[in-house]
Design a protein around this nucleic acid. Structure first.
Lengths: 190, 190
DNA sequence: ATTTTTATTGAACAGATGTACAATAACTTC
DNA sequence: GAAGTTATTGTACATCTGTTCAATAAAAAT
């Protein structure tokens, strides 16, 4: 890969972290990040549309890491858990790990882009976990069910965010388990 | 109320609608909206921080309208519906009514602010609907349950948005009823 | 090693941003 | 209706934005 391009990206990534320790993402200008990164402003616009573009690159890596934990094998048998799968419960540890970033992602001033990306990823986990119990539903209904379920999980993340991430991931694991057990119980009854 | 101030706000509101028919919210500059509204740019900054401030004013009215439909009396007895209340199901008709605005609210480029406001409002409905079945939970757990439930509903809205609002509000009412019935069933079992 | 391709740079441009200030106009009070 | 208060205006300023272009430097291809 072209070393010039790599240098541009690397310098910008580093400069973003430096600046995020001084000010919020929305207050970082393109001109400023370029000065810190020692990159020409014209070069910046050849690669990114705005400062959020640099942050998005970071977030893509974070999402990759989340997917990794999803691909990881787990020893609990899927059968007796129905809708809620163990890899889903890794979400709180994941968010805690990247808390500094998720504080930005869920911030009022931050564009919805990252939220949509996160939802899309969690939806994948949910769809994978759809079992025989949901087989009677139409494809469309399943799409909606996936968004319904995935977003309920993010609802816990938003509440966590609102309360400044004071609770432990373990407590949240317990909460989500309690809340979702209702569903499972039901599905076994149908 | 000061007629000068009223004129400033009214002109800006009207100008925003005019411009939204031409371009997306993010592409509307303060300078431009002031030209259309025939308001001095300095005056703008005395009232708003940016163009989103004008949009937020609109959205506050929309949220008020949503709360109105919530305050409205409904004839179904609360007892046999447990968690999901009828006023909650008005949400899809509400979003359809203001579809043009919600298209913006859920857009990738739009800041999370409006999402948080919507969630906060729907949470109120959810908390109101908490019944004896949830009495055994701690206050904190109920806060999380409210966000969990409220955000699951918004999950359906996001899926609706993704699919360009093709389904009817009635179909979504049926979906949410189907999805939430699981919970109710469970709660009756506990 | 030389040519070709591609990325970066610096300079320049019109327009936008955010803030400040004195002048003026419009409302409020008495 | 006069005096005091408050909102709006016009101007100005330093900075930022997004784009263009020729010049240069670095990488890839031959």
């Amino acid at each position: 890969m072209d070393l010039r391009v790599k240098k541009t990206h690397d310098n910008l990534q580093k400069a973003l972290i430096v600046l995020l320790n001084q000010k919020s993402l929305e207050n970082i200008s393109v001109a400023e990040i370029c000065r810190i990164a020692e990159i020409n402003r014209g070069t910046f616009y050849l690669h990114y549309k705005n400062v959020h573009g640099v942050f998005e690159r970071y977030f893509n890596d974070i999402v990759k890491d989340l997917k990794l934990s999803y691909d990881f094998p787990y020893d609990v048998t899927k059968d007796n858990l129905a809708m809620l799968t163990p890899e889903m419960i890794q979400i709180f540890h994941h968010v805690k790990k990247y808390e500094a970033f998720y504080r930005i992602v869920f911030d009022e001033k931050t564009p919805m882009l990252y939220y949509h990306k996160l939802l899309k990823t969690i939806r994948l986990f949910v769809i994978e976990s759809h079992t025989k119990e949901t087989e009677h539903m139409s494809d469309q209904q399943l799409e909606y069910l996936a968004s319904y379920t995935a977003n309920s999980i993010i609802g816990l993340l938003l509440q966590w965010h609102k309360e400044d991430y004071v609770l432990s991931p373990e407590t949240l694991n317990q909460y989500i388990y309690d809340f979702s057990r209702l569903k499972e119980t039901l599905q076994k009854i149908i």
